[in-house]
């Protein structure tokens, strides 16, 4: 039976994993290559690498770092951040990425999704949607969450899949970093509206939150960052917890 996935996320800036930089020395978080290998060994089902500086500083994702992470893990590897063309993707796949995620560039140029799916297949194309709730309605954000557009999140999810995206990574700006739980309503709405897998992201604080995302939120996978980096939640314990809750996971 197909299992639910637990996905650690490495937010990378200037070659280092940065989540929580404000309150913990960066070296204690570990470098992305070591962390990636550690998570793979601990039973992570996939690894996501986001170059969070890429959009803002108009830089391309650091391809040599992507290659070093890829060399050291034996699980699927998705890379995002600043990707805006077929050529960008070709370079990253050439570095050992298995999938790529696009965000701002696809909002600006939705046709990009069709081009990427045509070239590499839908299974390679993840649409990352950053969402923000304003007056009860969820809108799409771009540029690393700095710009709130007037595009309704659910409409964009449906359109992105129609254009060729094979998976959705939905991150709630309202929840990200709060450790108060995932945005269950929009995650569930997306999962029910499209026929591709949905990854819940933003807000993971407890093991219960993961369980909620995968049941009530109807997500196919749940992503966490700092809870894993700071060992607040260990992946093997999390998966055991989920299994005891009756959620199918790979142990």
């Amino acid at each position: 039976m197909l299992t639910k996935r637990i996905i650690p996320c490495l937010d990378v800036k200037d070659g280092k994993t940065v989540k929580g930089i404000n309150f913990v020395d960066i070296k204690t978080v570990g470098d992305p290559v070591e962390l990636g290998a550690l998570y793979a060994k601990m039973g992570a089902d996939e690894l996501v690498f986001l170059d969070i500086t890429a959009t803002n500083e108009k830089r391309k994702t650091l391809s040599d770092l992507v290659a070093r992470v890829a060399q050291n893990i034996n699980i699927p590897f998705c890379v995002g951040g600043g990707i805006s063309s077929v050529e960008d993707v070709r370079v990253l796949l050439g570095c050992g990425a298995d999938k790529i995620s696009v965000n701002t560039a696809a909002v600006k140029n939705p046709q990009l999704l069709t081009e990427l799916a045509g070239e590499f297949g839908s299974q390679c194309v993840v649409i990352a949607i950053d969402v923000k709730q304003v007056d009860g309605e969820w809108f799409v954000c771009t540029h690393g969450g700095q710009v709130v557009t007037d595009i309704k999140a659910l409409d964009w999810a449906i359109e992105a899949v129609r254009l060729g995206a094979g998976e959705i990574l939905v991150t709630s700006m309202n929840h990200d970093g709060t450790k108060n739980g995932f945005a269950l309503d929009i995650t569930r709405a997306m999962s029910e509206a499209v026929n591709v897998p949905v990854i819940a992201s933003g807000g993971a604080g407890t093991m219960e939150h993961f369980a909620e995302a995968l049941t009530e939120g109807k997500a196919d996978a749940a992503l966490g960052a700092s809870v894993f980096h700071y060992k607040e939640i260990e992946i093997p314990a999390l998966k055991q917890f989920l299994k005891e809750k009756g959620i199918e996971v790979r142990l």
Binding site: L2, R5, Q123, N195
Partner: peptide, 13 residues
Amino acid sequence: PNTEKVPQIGWND
């Protein structure tokens, strides 16, 4: 068939 999500993505036995 579209009775499940397509593509299948993930770990299966």
